[in-house]
Amino acid sequence: MAAVPREEIFEKVRQTLVDALSVEEDEVTEEATLTGDLGAESIDFLDIVFRLEKAFDIKIPQEELIPRDILSNPDYVTDRKLNEAGVAALKAAMPHADLAEFEKDPDIDKISDVFTVGTIVNFVEAKLAAS
């Protein structure tokens, strides 16, 4: 199957976020964070995942998008921060995310900052390429 152009994926992701979060189209940029910039709450992630599954006809297991098992694993977390092994595990589990900023202060309460619109586009792009 021919690869879907990134621009096309972005447009569909943008429409999904406009519908799910009632935000304006021009607010949805690649760099915008879902929680910080677009005001998503944890419950919105469920809605967004369902909408993406429908829009792209893919299955998104929750663990693939947000590896909660790593964030709640006591071997990886010390004082609510990921240790070195935890960061390595997270990197392996989230190739779709840019973790450079998060790595500087790997506070698990800040994991939502990792989710930019671009992260979602990367994730969908990888999913479509693998399907």
Binding site: L46, D47, F50, E53, K54, Q62
Partner: peptide, 10 residues
């Protein structure tokens, strides 16, 4: 029911 998974449903 539109979608139903272990975590949620729409």
């Amino acid at each position: 029911i539109e979608q139903l998974t272990d975590q949620a449903a729409t």
